[in-house]
Protein backbone atom coordinates (compact mmCIF):
# COMPACT_ATOMS: atom_id res chain seq x y z
CA UNK A 1 0.00 0.00 0.00
CA UNK A 2 2.82 2.44 0.80
CA UNK A 3 4.13 1.97 -2.72
CA UNK A 4 0.73 2.71 -4.21
CA UNK A 5 0.11 5.73 -2.01
CA UNK A 6 3.20 7.32 -3.48
CA UNK A 7 1.87 6.76 -6.98
CA UNK A 8 2.39 10.41 -8.03
CA UNK A 9 6.01 10.35 -7.03
CA UNK A 10 6.65 7.12 -8.90
CA UNK A 11 5.12 8.76 -11.96
CA UNK A 12 7.40 11.75 -11.44
CA UNK A 13 10.50 9.58 -11.30
CA UNK A 14 9.50 7.50 -14.35
CA UNK A 15 8.64 10.59 -16.43
CA UNK A 16 11.80 12.35 -15.34
CA UNK A 17 13.97 9.45 -16.42
CA UNK A 18 12.13 9.07 -19.75
CA UNK A 19 12.59 12.76 -20.49
CA UNK A 20 16.20 12.79 -19.42
CA UNK A 21 17.05 9.67 -21.43
CA UNK A 22 15.33 11.11 -24.49
CA UNK A 23 17.31 14.32 -24.20
CA UNK A 24 20.68 12.60 -23.89
CA UNK A 25 20.32 9.70 -26.30
CA UNK A 26 18.30 11.12 -29.18
CA UNK A 27 20.19 12.96 -31.89
CA UNK A 28 17.05 14.43 -33.41
CA UNK A 29 16.60 17.94 -32.05
CA UNK A 30 12.80 17.81 -32.03
CA UNK A 31 13.01 14.64 -29.93
CA UNK A 32 15.43 16.38 -27.61
CA UNK A 33 12.88 19.16 -27.14
CA UNK A 34 10.14 16.59 -26.51
CA UNK A 35 12.38 14.96 -23.90
CA UNK A 36 12.96 18.35 -22.32
CA UNK A 37 9.19 18.90 -22.17
CA UNK A 38 8.59 15.54 -20.46
CA UNK A 39 11.43 16.25 -18.02
CA UNK A 40 9.97 19.62 -17.07
CA UNK A 41 6.45 18.24 -16.79
CA UNK A 42 7.60 15.64 -14.27
CA UNK A 43 8.78 18.45 -12.00
CA UNK A 44 5.41 20.19 -12.39
CA UNK A 45 3.69 17.02 -11.15
CA UNK A 46 6.09 16.87 -8.20
CA UNK A 47 5.14 20.42 -7.22
CA UNK A 48 1.40 19.96 -7.69
CA UNK A 49 1.35 16.67 -5.76
CA UNK A 50 2.75 18.57 -2.81
CA UNK A 51 -0.23 20.91 -2.85
CA UNK A 52 -2.78 18.16 -2.17
CA UNK A 53 -4.06 18.09 1.38
CA UNK A 54 -5.75 14.82 2.29
CA UNK A 55 -9.45 15.50 2.73
CA UNK A 56 -9.00 19.03 1.49
CA UNK A 57 -11.48 20.69 -0.84
CA UNK A 58 -10.73 22.81 -3.86
CA UNK A 59 -9.30 26.10 -2.61
CA UNK A 60 -12.36 28.25 -3.21
CA UNK A 61 -13.60 29.93 -0.03
CA UNK A 62 -17.10 28.73 0.87
CA UNK A 63 -19.21 27.84 3.90
CA UNK A 64 -19.05 24.46 5.57
CA UNK A 65 -15.52 23.66 4.43
CA UNK A 66 -12.59 23.90 6.80
CA UNK A 67 -9.79 22.10 5.01
CA UNK A 68 -8.58 23.34 1.65
CA UNK A 69 -5.86 22.07 -0.62
CA UNK A 70 -2.87 24.36 -0.96
CA UNK A 71 -3.32 26.56 -4.04
CA UNK A 72 0.17 28.04 -4.02
CA UNK A 73 1.95 25.19 -5.89
CA UNK A 74 -0.61 25.50 -8.69
CA UNK A 75 0.12 29.18 -9.06
CA UNK A 76 3.86 28.57 -9.06
CA UNK A 77 3.50 25.85 -11.65
CA UNK A 78 1.37 28.08 -13.83
CA UNK A 79 4.43 30.33 -14.02
CA UNK A 80 6.73 27.37 -14.60
CA UNK A 81 4.47 26.13 -17.42
CA UNK A 82 4.75 29.51 -19.13
CA UNK A 83 8.52 29.29 -18.76
CA UNK A 84 8.43 25.77 -20.18
CA UNK A 85 6.38 26.85 -23.19
CA UNK A 86 8.75 29.74 -23.84
CA UNK A 87 11.69 27.34 -23.68
CA UNK A 88 10.01 24.96 -26.13
CA UNK A 89 9.22 27.85 -28.47
CA UNK A 90 12.79 29.15 -28.45
CA UNK A 91 14.09 25.60 -28.93
CA UNK A 92 11.79 24.98 -31.90
CA UNK A 93 12.65 28.34 -33.44
CA UNK A 94 16.34 27.51 -33.17
CA UNK A 95 15.66 24.09 -34.73
CA UNK A 96 13.97 25.76 -37.70
CA UNK A 97 16.98 28.03 -38.17
CA UNK A 98 19.37 25.09 -37.81
CA UNK A 99 17.42 23.19 -40.47
CA UNK A 100 17.70 26.21 -42.78
CA UNK A 101 21.43 26.52 -42.14
CA UNK A 102 22.44 22.86 -42.23
CA UNK A 103 19.59 21.02 -43.97
CA UNK A 104 19.40 18.60 -41.04
CA UNK A 105 18.17 18.52 -37.49
CA UNK A 106 20.22 15.52 -36.42
CA UNK A 107 22.94 16.31 -33.93
CA UNK A 108 25.24 13.54 -35.14
CA UNK A 109 24.84 14.44 -38.82
CA UNK A 110 25.63 18.08 -38.07
CA UNK A 111 28.61 17.05 -35.98
CA UNK A 112 29.93 15.20 -39.03
CA UNK A 113 29.76 18.49 -41.00
CA UNK A 114 31.31 20.58 -38.22
CA UNK A 115 34.04 18.06 -37.51
CA UNK A 116 36.59 20.59 -36.29
CA UNK A 117 34.08 22.14 -33.98
CA UNK A 118 34.28 19.70 -31.09
CA UNK A 119 35.68 21.21 -27.96
Amino acid sequence: MTVLSFFNYWAVIVLMMIGYYCMIVRGNMIKKIIGLGIFQTSVFILFISAGKVIGGATPVLREGVDVYSNPLPHVLILTAIVVGIATTAVGLALTVRIREAYGSIDDDAIDAVEGDDRA
Binding site: M23, L36, G91, L94, I98, A101, I110, E114, D117
Partner: peptide
Protein backbone atom coordinates in the same frame (compact mmCIF):
# COMPACT_ATOMS: atom_id res chain seq x y z
CA UNK B 1 27.49 27.41 -35.60
CA UNK B 2 26.06 30.09 -33.30
CA UNK B 3 22.67 28.39 -33.78
CA UNK B 4 24.07 25.04 -32.67
CA UNK B 5 25.81 26.64 -29.72
CA UNK B 6 22.55 28.32 -28.70
CA UNK B 7 20.58 25.07 -29.04
CA UNK B 8 23.06 23.07 -26.97
CA UNK B 9 23.14 25.78 -24.35
CA UNK B 10 19.34 25.74 -24.32
CA UNK B 11 19.26 22.00 -23.58
Amino acid sequence: RALLAAFRYLI
